[in-house]
Design a protein around this nucleic acid. Structure first.
Lengths: 355, 355
DNA sequence: GTCTATCACTAAATCGATTAACTAAAAATA
DNA sequence: TATTTTTAGTTAATCGATTTAGTGATAGAC
C-alpha cells in the first residue's frame, strides 16, 4: 500500500518548493515565470507517480468545493431522475460534481439536508423545494450562495427559477379533450399548495370554464403508495359516473390511475379518456398509448445549469435573478376518439354538471 | 452577510480554547473531563449562533469524508435510479452522503470518474462497473479503500459483490414460456460481455436446451437510442417468422422491443409473447401487462450498503470479501396464453436442476 | 509536608493545498 | 560601473478543524 503523495513530497523529490509545484499544477507557470525546464520536470514527475491533488485541502484553502447540492423530491421518480441525469452531465462538463438527495417533499428532512450541504460547503444549490424552507433558502441567499429553484418556486422568495408553463399544459389538455367530444373531464391532483400544482389546476379550471362544462376536481393526499392511490382513484371513478375523461396532474398519479382503470376493466378511451402530466413514463407504450403533457426535460436541465453557472461566476451585486418559464407540449397519442362523431352534441351543458 | 463562524471564534467568545470546543462538539466531554458548566456554555452558544462545523476542514484532518462514490450506468434508468434511491436513504441514515455519476458503460469515462472521486477522497465506492477498469479498482483495493460491486462483477477481481441470480431469471422465463406452449422463444440481448448479460444468456440457453427447442439469440449493440433499437427489433422479428416469444435481457431493450411490436401491429401474447428483465418500468400497466423477471431492488440496496459499512468499519485485514447472489422472481402477468392448449408435455422434471 | 494523581483544561502541530510577500541572482538600463 | 528591473523562484501564513502532549491547580496519600 503506497501512501498518498502530496505536493510537498513532489517538492522534496524535485528539490523545489511546494509553491512552484502549485503554480505549475494550476497553469500559473507562465504568469509566475517558471522556467520551461522546471515545468517539464514537474509535469513529468507528476505523470510518473500518478499524483492526484487533494481536493479537500484545496477546498479548505480556496473556499470553493466545485460541488453543487441538488435536492429533488425523489430521485427514483422518472421526471426527477431524467432531469438529474441531464444536470449531472452538463455540470460534469463544467467540472462541477453534484450531490443528490431526495427530500420526499418533507420540510424537516429538507432543512436537515440543507444543513448537511452547508456543512460540506457546496458552492450552489438546485432545488425543487417543499414549502416551509423559505428561511433556510433566504439564509443561503444572504450568505451569497447561489440557489436555483426548478419545477416549482416559493412565492415569497426572489430566487432564480426555471419552471414550465403548467397552466398552459392542463389548459391544452382540457381543450384537446373537449374538442374531441368529452364533456365530463375530471382533474385528479394532489392535495398540495405547490406552485406547479396550483398552476395546473388553474389551467384546468380556466379551460373548463371556457368549455362550458362543470369542473370535477379531486385532490388526493400526497405520499400515498401506488396501491392506495389506485384504490382512491377507483372510488372516485365509481362515485362520478358522469365523467368520461381524467387528467392526472402528475405522472405518479397517472400510474396509479391507470392501475385503477385497468383493475376496473375500463377501456381507454372508450370508457374513459386519460391525459397524463409529464411524459417520462413511456406513455407511448401503453395500449392504447396515453396522451400526455410533455415537459422539455433537456431544456430545463440546460437552463438550470446555465443560470447556476452564471450565478457562480458573478459577484453577488451583478447577479440577475430571473424566472424562466419553458413551454410544454401536448403529445397527442390517441387520435381515434369514440366520441368525435357526437361532438358538440352537448346542447345542454347545464345537465352535465357532475358534482 | 454574516461571515461563517469557526471553532476559534467560539473559543474566543467563550474564553476557552478551540480544543475544548472540539471535545464538546465531538462528544468527548466526558472522556476529556470537561466540566458540566463549560459543556453547557458551549452547547448553548453553538445553538445560539447556529454554528455549523466545516466538514472540509474536518475531512482534511481526519482523512474521512463520509462520502461514498457511486457509479452506475445511467442514473435515469429506472433500475439504477431505484437502487440509488434505496442506497441514498440507507446511507444517509448512517451519516454517509453519496456522489452519483453515470458511467454510460464507458471505460474511459469511468476511469475519469474514479480519478475525480479519488481526488475528493471518497471513503468508499459502489459501482456497476464497465469492463476495463480492473486496474483502477485494484489500485483502490491496494490503497485499502472499500469497493462494492453490484449488478455485475469483474471476474479477475476479488471484490465484495452483490448480484442477482440472472441465470435463474432467464431460465425461469424460458420455462414459463415453454410450459405455456411457446416453442419459438428468442432471446434479445446486448452485445456485451458483462457478467450479468452472460449469465442471462446462459440461463436462456440451458432452459432452451432442456426444452428441446432451437435457441434464437440476437445481440444488439449497446448505446443505441430507443428508436434505433426498435427498428432493429422490427427487422429481427421480420426475419424470424418462427418465433412466437421474445425474452428481453434488459428493461431498456424491452421498451424498444415493445415499441417495435406496437409499430408492427402485433398482439401480445397472441402474435408474440414477451418477457422483460427487471420490473421497474411499470410493466403491469401495459395492456396486456407484461411478465417480467423482478429484481429485489430493496434487498440489493440493503446488502450493498451493509457490505460497504462493514468494510468501512473494519481494518483491511479483517475484511471479508464476499459475493452475495440474491434471488429473482418471475412476475407472471399474462396468464391467459393462447397456446396453452398445445402445451408440450414436459415429462422429465428431473431436468429441473438449475446448477 | 512532600509527592503523586487527578482535574480541567490549553498550546501547538498537523492535514495538503494556495498565495501574499519576499529574495538572490541575472539582465537591462543609465 | 552603479542602479534598477526582471527572472525564477522561496518562505511562511492561512483555511478550520483534530489531537498529542503538556500545564497549573487542587486533592489525596503517606
Amino acid at each position: 500500500m503506497k501512501k498518498k503523495i502530496s505536493i510537498h513530497d513532489i517538492a522534496k523529490a524535485l528539490d523545489l518548493s511546494a509553491t512552484t509545484i502549485s503554480f505549475v499544477l494550476n497553469g500559473k507557470a507562465e504568469e509566475k515565470k517558471i522556467s520551461e525546464d522546471v515545468r517539464k520536470r514537474v509535469s513529468d514527475y507528476i505523470k510518473e507517480v500518478g499524483y492526484q491533488p487533494n481536493m479537500i485541502a484545496k477546498s479548505l484553502r480556496t473556499g470553493k468545493t466545485h460541488i453543487i447540492g441538488m435536492l429533488v423530491e425523489d430521485i427514483s421518480d422518472p421526471f426527477f431522475s431524467c432531469i438529474s441525469r441531464g444536470i449531472e452531465t452538463i455540470a460534469y462538463n463544467h467540472k462541477y460534481k453534484i450531490f443528490f438527495a431526495s427530500t420526499e417533499n418533507d420540510t424537516e428532512k429538507t432543512k436537515a439536508l440543507i444543513k448537511v450541504f452547508r456543512e460540506r460547503q457546496v458552492d450552489g444549490y438546485i432545488m425543487a423545494p417543499p414549502a416551509g424552507v423559505e428561511e433556510e433558502i433566504r439564509a443561503l441567499m444572504d450568505d451569497d450562495i447561489p440557489v436555483i429553484l426548478f419545477d416549482r418556486y416559493l412565492p415569497s422568495l426572489n430566487t432564480s427559477t426555471v419552471i414550465i408553463d403548467n397552466f398552459s399544459g392542463s389548459y391544452q389538455a382540457v381543450k384537446h379533450l373537449s374538442e374531441n367530444g368529452f364533456s365530463g373531464i375530471a382533474f385528479l391532483t394532489l392535495n398540495s399548495e405547490q406552485t406547479q400544482m396550483h398552476a395546473r389546476l388553474q389551467g384546468y379550471l380556466k379551460a373548463i370554464e371556457e368549455s362550458g362544462c362543470q369542473p370535477v376536481v379531486q385532490k388526493l393526499p400526497s405520499k400515498l403508495s401506488h396501491e392506495l392511490s389506485a384504490e382512491m382513484v377507483q372510488e372516485f371513478i365509481k362515485q362520478h359516473d358522469k365523467i368520461d375523461a381524467i387528467i392526472f396532474a402528475t405522472n405518479y398519479l397517472a400510474i396509479s390511475g391507470l392501475q385503477a382503470i385497468r383493475d376496473m376493466g375500463l377501456a381507454i378511451p372508450d370508457d374513459i379518456a386519460v391525459i397524463g402530466f409529464d411524459d417520462n413514463t413511456h406513455f407511448n407504450l401503453f395500449t392504447p398509448s396515453i396522451t400526455a403533457v410533455a415537459q422539455p426535460i433537456e431544456e430545463i436541465a440546460q437552463e438550470v445549469v446555465r443560470q447556476l453557472l452564471n450565478a457562480l461566476s458573478n459577484e453577488r451585486e451583478s447577479r440577475i435573478r430571473r424566472m424562466v418559464m419553458l413551454p410544454v407540449k401536448l403529445i397527442v397519442r390517441n387520435s381515434t376518439y369514440p366520441k368525435v362523431k357526437k361532438k358538440i352534441v352537448h346542447s345542454e351543458p347545464s345537465t352535465m354538471k357532475i358534482n
